[in-house]
């Protein structure tokens, strides 16, 4: 499915804010989409950063694979669109 990603950036652009939550570099994570089954590096997934939070979409099918919202006292992670995250431990 081709969609217009004219206003999107990619996962690289949200790695800084997410470094406040995760102890590992998120850009190298292999994200498995729960909708189409494609696996892509987090860095190359499509990111929308203009709203109140960040939405990460699958680079293949554009389904939402992650949502990240920061409130004054919490951070919300919705990873229900990801089947799995593979986090390398070798580096």
């Amino acid at each position: 499915m081709e969609q217009s990603h004219e206003f999107a950036v990619d996962g690289n652009a949200v790695a800084g804010p997410l470094s406040e939550i995760f102890a590992f570099d998120v850009t190298s994570v292999q994200v498995n989409c729960n909708h189409c089954g494609a696996t892509n590096p987090f860095a190359e997934e499509i990111a929308y950063v203009g709203g109140p939070g960040t939405v990460l979409r699958c680079a293949d099918c554009a389904s939402v694979v992650g949502r990240f919202v920061k409130t004054p006292d919490s951070v919300w992670l919705d990873l229900s669109g990801s089947a799995s995250w593979r986090i390398g431990t070798s580096q």
């Binding site: 690289n12 790695a15 800084g16 470094s19 570099d25 850009t27 190298s28 987090f42 860095a43």
Partner: peptide
């Protein structure tokens, strides 16, 4: 500023 950020690219 903060970084460096990003291990993929």
């Amino acid at each position: 500023l903060r970084g460096p950020i990003g291990g993929w690219f």
